[in-house]
Design a protein around this nucleic acid. Structure first.
Lengths: 107, 107
DNA sequence: TCATTAATTGTAATTTATTTACAATTTTAA
DNA sequence: TTAAAATTGTAAATAAATTACAATTAATGA
């Protein structure tokens, strides 16, 4: 069947996710978290953007966005910000491990 | 094994790709195509950004970025811009079909 | 209840990034 | 060599993001 061709196009996406960088406005659009709140979380040390220099626009990667989405979920469940951040840590490590494995497998 | 948990986190990513929006600066960072060139391709009708209103910043989705990456490859192979765009069309349709299938499967 | 900390939100002034538009340059192919 | 295709340059205007200082709104324990 022709599925192999389609799969080839999609298997690439782990590389894509790896290269992905997004500005704060887009993160806000994607996650539905206000830019003001994202900056606040960063101020508190919960997340860390990839900003190259002070004053330049913030950049976020896949892992960052993932983290924000997970934190948002936990906040909605009633956890505090710090507790959410702590809980999310473990899941993120798992995601990263998996990505690493997949990347190694594909090269 | 604990793979099922990790997979759960990653299977979500098709939804993520579906929601993804990126500005022109980030597209340029991701694809290594100059912003000037991206605007030129758009001017020529090769790609279409999701700009809401004239004058507002351009927004691109996953499919757009994918298209640019493919076009870039074909240009490097020696195809003209129009020929590249034409060739890329088919592969994009396949990608879209696959994404649609996967999405349907997950809900 | 009241005080305290956590969490969030507001916004002015400034800076960075993007847009449009007009033009110039380089490349390609007949 | 000429014409069309492809790309690049940039000034002026606009949009979006930054920082910093402040205010407001929960949430919680004494």
């Amino acid at each position: 069947m022709k599925n192999s061709e389609e799969d080839k196009d999609l298997s690439f996406d782990y590389d894509f996710l790896d290269k992905l960088v997004v500005g704060i406005g887009e993160v806000s659009q994607i996650t539905k978290i206000a830019t003001r709140q994202i900056r606040y979380w960063e101020e508190k040390g919960i997340i860390k953007s990839l900003t190259e220099e002070e004053g330049k626009n913030r950049r976020y990667d896949y892992k960052n966005i993932k983290k924000m989405l997970l934190i948002k979920e936990l906040l909605d469940e009633g956890y505090t910000l710090d507790a959410s951040a702590e809980k999310v840590k473990n899941r993120l490590e798992m995601i990263e491990e998996t990505l690493t494995k997949i990347k190694k497998g594909n090269h």
